[in-house]
Simulated scan of single mutants.
Amino acid sequence: MAAKDELGRAGEERAVRYLTAIGYRVLDRNWRSDQGEIDVVARIDRRLAVVEVKTRRSAAFGHPFEAVDARKRRRLWQLAHAWAEANPEHARGLEIVIEAIGIIGSDPASGELEHLRDLS
């Protein structure tokens, strides 16, 4: 596995631990369709959160959230609705929200973590 892929996987692991610790229930990870991939699908209260995780060793090439631009958010909305259609038993009656977690640091386990909620 390439170093970039290992960094991303470690960041997703950290993000899942964080989300679980603050009360989210993770329903799916790395869900794929022909439109793309969702890093994490989680539920909290009456919300279904589709969470994009971006991990960087440093901010030298920009903050991780800069990669979650309007185009990426549109794609995440499409993926969120595709996931909800494929998993109606988990999505029915829930408000869908798009969220992002950015992690910066050479070690994702201890790097700085930021969580943006509801990027609608």
Rank of each mutant, 00 (worst) to 15 (best):
31 W>E: 03
46 R>W: 14
83 W>D: 01
44 I>C: 13
23 G>T: 04
25 R>P: 02
77 W>K: 01
24 Y>T: 09
23 G>K: 05
45 D>W: 11
48 L>R: 07
53 V>H: 03
17 R>C: 08
17 R>K: 14
52 E>W: 04
28 D>E: 10
50 V>R: 01
17 R>D: 14
4 K>M: 11
73 R>L: 14
41 V>R: 04
66 E>H: 09
8 G>A: 13
61 F>D: 12
84 A>G: 10
9 R>A: 12
7 L>W: 01
64 P>W: 08
85 E>T: 11
33 S>Y: 02
38 I>G: 04
50 V>M: 07
82 A>D: 15
34 D>I: 11
17 R>M: 10
29 R>W: 03
67 A>N: 04
32 R>N: 10
77 W>P: 02
59 A>C: 13
40 V>F: 03
7 L>Y: 00
61 F>Y: 09
67 A>V: 04
35 Q>Y: 14
37 E>K: 03
36 G>P: 04
53 V>I: 12
43 R>P: 02
27 L>V: 10
13 E>F: 01
76 L>W: 06
51 V>H: 03
75 R>A: 13
30 N>L: 00
21 A>R: 10
19 L>C: 06
14 R>F: 06
39 D>V: 07
80 A>M: 02
9 R>Y: 12
69 D>W: 10
15 A>R: 01
70 A>C: 08
80 A>K: 05
48 L>A: 06
13 E>Q: 13
38 I>L: 08
74 R>M: 12
80 A>N: 07
33 S>T: 15
35 Q>H: 15
54 K>E: 10
24 Y>Q: 06
49 A>Y: 05
81 H>C: 07
47 R>M: 11
53 V>T: 04
22 I>R: 03
42 A>Q: 09
66 E>T: 11
82 A>R: 14
72 K>S: 09
56 R>S: 12
70 A>P: 11
71 R>K: 10
59 A>F: 07
48 L>T: 00
77 W>T: 07
